[in-house]
Design a binder for these strands. Structure first.
Lengths: 140, 140
DNA sequence: CCGCATCCAAAATGATACTG
DNA sequence: CAGTATCATTTTGGATGCGG
């Protein structure tokens, strides 16, 4: 019987099932482009879901790239457009079920950031944990 | 007294402490470039830690970009070079403590991939959970 | 104002060859 | 084996404009 391995042991993490492709490689093909995860942050966590609101929330992101990313995310089934008003057309972007499953990814990145980049993030420069930063939000 | 919010409620996730910068934005500045997370996958999970091994494991990644990424990761304190042999110089790349803290990020991305891209990843096209794929590895 | 297209410049990445 | 050097290609940034 095999012993369980601690995650950082000095040997590779071997899957129990053969992989045709690397899950990380495949997923990064979808989420790995510049701005993608930050746009998802807006929609998923900040509830900023309109075109120009997203653009304003992310200095440096241009209309051109934002249109591309939104349509890529839509094509991948992570977000969908909800028509708020016709003529002039105004749409709000919301997460699909698949899109909601990216939230743990966003959270794990935030958890890393507040631990290691506290200096840039918090006025008191003190690292924090997710449950400190978001108490009562269901974090572990 | 405030009620705890489910993570996907229709309102923004508000931090308990004011943020000078967005943790996601800051972290993506380090991890957000093309190939970075895949290189970390090699070092952190597959224990592929030598220059040409990494390059061979990631078709499309060139020497040029790999050198840049390794030195960026080193400069950010995520990895460090262990000299295996001098002249010709051979180094192995290993995670620092900070680098080890990116493993949950890698894992959350893998978890997303094996759920939503099972078609490309598994021969039987069946989505899986982390504990199915890596039983006895300490996954929830 | 809103979502988005167009044009051009700049930056990032890819291909190939080469070096100690 | 671990990188450099050079050049081609792709991706992104910045400005502007346009129909609704």
């Amino acid at each position: 019987m095999k012993k369980a391995q601690p995650p950082t042991a000095d040997r590779p993490l071997v899957p129990a099932v053969e992989l045709l492709a690397c899950p990380l490689l495949v997923t990064m093909g979808v989420l790995g482009k510049k701005w993608t995860l930050l746009i998802l942050r807006d929609i998923a966590l900040l509830k900023i879901n309109r075109f120009n609101q997203i653009r304003r929330s992310l200095p440096g992101l241009t209309s051109r790239v934002l249109v591309m990313r939104l349509h890529e995310l839509e094509a991948c089934g992570l977000i969908e457009a909800v028509v708020v008003k016709e003529s002039p057309r105004v749409v709000g972007w919301v997460l699909t079920e698949k899109g909601k499953d990216t939230i743990p990814i966003l959270m794990s990145i935030i958890a890393f950031g507040i631990k290691w980049y506290a200096d840039e993030i918090f006025e008191d420069h003190r690292p924090r944990t997710m449950s400190e930063l978001y108490p009562g939000s269901g974090c572990p």
